[in-house]
Design a protein around this nucleic acid. Structure first.
Lengths: 253, 253
DNA sequence: CGTTGGGTTGAGATTGGTCAAAATGGGTGG
DNA sequence: CCACCCATTTTGACCAATCTCAACCCAACG
């Protein structure tokens, strides 16, 4: 069950448009061209695969409501999420130029996607080179996020990983207007999901959360995460928002 | 000291052109335009920073000879490599559209780079949209590689991580013609470097290598890695080369 | 030769994993 | 409104992979 009030169809301005406007540095004409591509909606229940690892993808998905994740599955059942997706995120840019996905997208809650035809998007890119640049930029930002998360997986403690993740989610959700105040968000995911993002065990996530709570770094009840002192959480985790590139695309000048 | 015989300047066809030709699906005209950008060379000694995390980058580096790595440094000295770079690899595509690098590139051996002016590359992209698509594709492939390595960091044992890395290097170096036979490569890096790629300690890398040697999965002497039975190593590590996308860019048709 | 940068080894500490059971809590059907 | 069910969270006891620290070795090189 999604935890956001209004169905995405009715949201005045959807979070993807919001991101485009605030980050992409496009003209109204180009934004309109992209908006025109996003007419089709798809609703998917929680815990389903959106794209699986196979087949030449013909559609790009943009998450408008709910939470999803990019996942890599091992044959023996191990799972690692490479990204948490929140409203406004493109799920599978790579589908544009890659033959086969090598990681899938799964919903964590009920989700609403905008489904964009790959062929049409390519047409728009040809008509408006700046749109192509924005797509490349999105790919680069993802790169940056993957790199950062990788550093955390490789070198950070459980405590740092979880704290860092929370800082990131706070920043991202705030950016698309889904934070409540400046330090509280809805976190409609289970501890098992957290474990698949952070590369830990559910049990260890649980214990680590308890420590964070005991240190009063977070308050986490039900699906609501509150951070009493964001700066302190950032310090504990070494989080700095630079890698999210919330200051937008670099102009070509 | 680079371990490859001929200085890159004298190599008949450089590994980057080779990759472009085999992967990018470009016409001769476009390839020529790119080649024309790659006239400037830069030689850098081992263990130096090529790009650091700051400043609006004005140049893109393509590695022609030697080994390098993308790295993320923690304030307290911890380090994680997010990618090993071998000849033919672009070091910093993101420089095109990103304001500030959030991870640096460091040389592991003496290196030769082709230095491409960002402005000129953007001009070529404008003139030939297909070149822009290839750049995006490169970014997507990197994404895919990061995702895979991330899954290994999050969920694989030390043994699997190292074995997987070796499989990957074998495949990549073979692709640019730097493997000797089909199962031997030069590995001009220290165990400490391996530890920074795999998120382990140098000591543990050492012990794990010994196990791999004892199991006759690898032979590793000096800086030469030989894999007696590549299939077995792939099996042990769960490696499949799909994520490297060595079958090239997807055509737009 | 002496120095130095890897590589190797050992002993002991720790973080995080495993397995299994118990508690909690929201949602559903009666 | 209650009883039950399931998923999720929490707890406990124990274990294993990996880390830490420190020493030692060895080959390359000045």
């Amino acid at each position: 069950m999604s935890s956001f009030a209004a169905p995405a169809d009715k949201v005045a301005i959807n979070p993807f448009s919001l991101k485009l406007r605030r980050l992409a540095g496009l003209g109204e004409q180009e934004i309109a061209a992209i908006d025109a591509l996003c007419h089709e909606r798809r609703h998917i229940a929680a815990n389903r695969e959106v794209t699986s690892e196979s087949a030449e993808p013909e559609h790009i998905h943009v998450l408008l409501d709910g939470w999803a994740a990019r996942q890599k599955l091992f044959p023996d059942g191990r799972r690692q999420f490479s990204a948490l997706l929140v409203p406004g995120d493109i799920c599978d840019v790579d589908g544009l130029f890659i033959r086969r996905y090598d990681c899938g997208v799964a919903t964590l809650t009920a989700c609403t996607f905008a489904v964009i035809s790959r062929a049409e998007l390519l047409r728009v890119i040809n008509a408006f080179p700046a749109v192509g640049h924005v797509i490349t930029w999105f790919a680069c930002v993802e790169n940056s996020m993957l790199t950062t998360r990788m550093a955390m997986l490789g070198r950070a403690s459980a405590r740092e990983r979880i704290a860092h993740l929370f800082c990131e989610l706070l920043a991202r959700l705030q950016f698309v207007g889904l934070a409540d105040g400046d330090s509280t968000i809805q976190l409609p995911i289970t501890q098992e999901t957290l474990s698949d993002v952070t590369g830990l065990t559910p049990v260890h996530v649980n214990r680590t959360l308890q420590v964070l709570r005991a240190n009063e770094l977070i308050r986490l009840e039900g699906h609501r995460l509150a951070v009493p002192d964001p700066d302190r959480l950032r310090q504990v985790s070494g989080f700095s928002p630079d890698y999210l590139h919330l200051d937008g695309i670099r102009q070509r000048a």
